[in-house]
Nucleic acid binder design. Structure first.
Lengths: 247, 247
DNA sequence: TATCAATGTGTCATTTTTACACTTTCAAAT
DNA sequence: ATTTGAAAGTGTAAAAATGACACATTGATA
């Protein structure tokens, strides 16, 4: 058997990225429409593609994400592998695969990644691989291509579990944010109401927010104070063994 | 390009299993020594092998585990994918791979699985694939074949996080166990001392332990009362939305 | 200057957590 | 029979965290 060329595509392994955002009201996720590549249905997909043999999984996820959406240099955390041999079962999926892959019949295992980004940092745009990319409201998504809906559900679960334990929500907000915005974010992710006063007390007691002593401008109501996430303080606390950042 | 035969081995994807046990003193893990297959070093490995194209990942993990160790029908939970292209970098690794694989040069991505079993339920034995399989003390393991040491560390971390949230420790104990045994188990996994009285109070308050009103026999000290995990009660509580089984 | 909309704030009762030491029970040894 | 060793089992008080709950403040706009 011939030795494989290390920089060819690996026909068996892909990566898919679940990129969450927050539009100040709801959780959103970045989807692509690969219409340019003759994807026949109207269903959207998570940005994802096959990996090369000479890149590691994390690199592949970053490369693919950038190729499909333009987003780069973000922290992607692995969610897990999805690999039912019947994963690509719909004829439409196969049709589409043929248009971009050497071996549409092959069984593909995909490694899913999750990230949280500030929605304002990224303006959706088309690329040579995707007709369009854009933010969709998570709660309005009811189907996706392949098994991407299942992957999205797993990602939501993971986000929920993680935000209970670690202060990751800040990644979804702009640098300066209000406590109300953070409050709404937690309610969106945990999918349940949280008492305003108790939320504030608890989040402030963590000691990882800096009050910027600045007020919102131009809002038609009492302007809120702005805060920022104090990463240095967070790292300090973490390193001294403190780990009670849960919610 | 030819259509692949669906039941051949997929040369690019393997599964590895991290099976934890508890010997009433320490956390243990199931390792194999593939001496029969000319594995040259003395390093042990996690049970793992390539998958077939027509089986899903969970099935593959169960099959491989049974082939290598005889353990079957256990609940395996996915840990994640490990796939640095330089994963198989040592010459000894390649040598060994050649003895069991068609394509030792190919880049292999492995999907790791974790499980907790009652050590007494499994008597290590050799198989046609592994010279021997046996329990090793986790704290005494400092190297393993391939990237298995790294996988083991990730598995320990996951176990630690999970036991803080869910009552999974019971899987490592026999049906009847004492609170002291459970206490030692939690200390082993969390790797820190827990106050005896506080531990008992908290674990009993969860309401998922049944006191069997039976005493240990033949121990050279005050015999302990025996308990069992009340799974029905746990499911009841879970279904009513209660989820405070943390520690 | 009145209205609207969201911000911001405190207390009390309950529950949870933490720290801490001595008595009980059985088997084994004398 | 008695002693000894080894682990089991048990309670309390102080501190911290949680949960429930309502009204005054602020700025923009009409």
């Amino acid at each position: 058997m011939l030795k494989k060329n290390q920089s060819e595509l690996n026909p068996n392994v892909s990566v898919d990225c679940v990129i969450f955002g927050f539009d100040m009201e709801n959780l959103t996720v970045l989807l692509i429409d690969r219409g340019k590549n003759k994807y026949p249905g109207s269903r959207m997909a998570l940005p994802g593609n096959l990996i090369y043999n000479d890149e590691n999984l994390d690199e592949a996820a970053n490369r693919v994400l950038e190729e499909l959406t333009g987003l780069n240099n973000i922290y992607l955390e692995q969610l897990g592998a999805f690999g039912d041999p019947n994963r690509i079962c719909k004829e439409s999926d196969r049709e589409w695969l043929k248009s971009i892959r050497a071996e549409p019949e092959a069984r593909v295992i995909t490694i899913a990644y999750v990230s949280l980004v500030q929605i304002s940092d990224y303006t959706p745009h088309a690329s040579s691989f995707a007709q369009s990319a854009g933010w969709a409201l998570v709660k309005e998504i009811h189907e996706l291509a392949f098994d991407h809906y299942e992957i999205l559900q797993a990602a939501k679960e993971k986000l929920k579990e993680k935000i209970k334990i670690q202060p990751i929500g800040f990644n979804l907000l702009p640098e300066k944010f209000t406590l109300s915005q953070l409050h709404r974010l937690y309610e969106s992710v945990l999918d349940k109401p949280l008492d305003k006063r108790n939320f504030r007390r608890k989040i402030l007691k963590l000691g990882i927010l800096t009050n910027l002593k600045e007020k919102q401008k131009g809002v038609p109501h009492k302007p809120s104070e702005l805060y920022k996430f104090n990463e240095e303080r967070y790292l300090e606390l973490s390193q001294t063994g403190y780990d009670n950042f849960g919610f």
